[in-house]
Computed example of a mutant assay.
Amino acid sequence: MQQPALAVGDVFLTPGRTIGEGDINLFAGLVGDFTPVHVDEQHARQTPHGRRIAHGPHGLATAIGLFTQTGVLGPRVIGLLNLNWDFSAPIFLGDTIRARVVVEELRPTSKHGRHVGTFAFEVTNQAQEAVQAGRMKVLLQGL
């Protein structure tokens, strides 16, 4: 599959993903985080959210995963260099999230054919409310 060319300023919109019961349980088991606000409905009803919420990093990981589905990164990624992420609102069970991703920077490295790519994410729910935002830097090859 031919990967799309990348240029600073390019904007990509990811598909959506609805966060369900199985996603929360799988993520909790994968990372070992069974904090009650995520897995215990009775407890979560007593919190300011009034119901269970997804783990913050679950939203981050889902947004990055949705971006990979666009085909922009694929085999050109050598590795993750940095993440800087803000969590502005909860993601509830049943929310459908998607990301708008902007190519902010493509900087060549000292090694021929390699670049550091910086991608800005805005993650929104089904009501178009921003729930997370962040930047991801990755080492790329073959632009």
Rank of each mutant, 00 (worst) to 15 (best):
T68Q: 01
V77H: 00
V77G: 10
I24V: 09
A133P: 07
V37M: 09
A61G: 12
G32F: 05
H58A: 02
H112W: 13
E122V: 15
H43F: 13
H58I: 00
I78R: 10
Q141N: 14
T124E: 12
A44Y: 03
R45N: 06
T47R: 03
H49S: 04
I53S: 09
P36W: 03
P75D: 01
G65L: 10
L73W: 03
D33W: 06
N25K: 03
L66E: 08
D23I: 01
T109G: 12
G79W: 00
P48L: 02
D33R: 02
P90Q: 06
T35Q: 11
F87H: 11
M136R: 00
W85H: 04
A127Y: 06
D95M: 07
L93S: 04
A127T: 11
P75K: 07
G20L: 08
D95P: 08
L73N: 05
D33L: 08
G65P: 07
I78H: 05
G113W: 13
D23K: 04
A44H: 05
V101F: 07
L93K: 03
M1C: 10
G59M: 10
G134Y: 11
L139Y: 07
R17S: 12
L60I: 03
E105W: 00
L73S: 11
I91N: 00
I19C: 00
D86C: 10
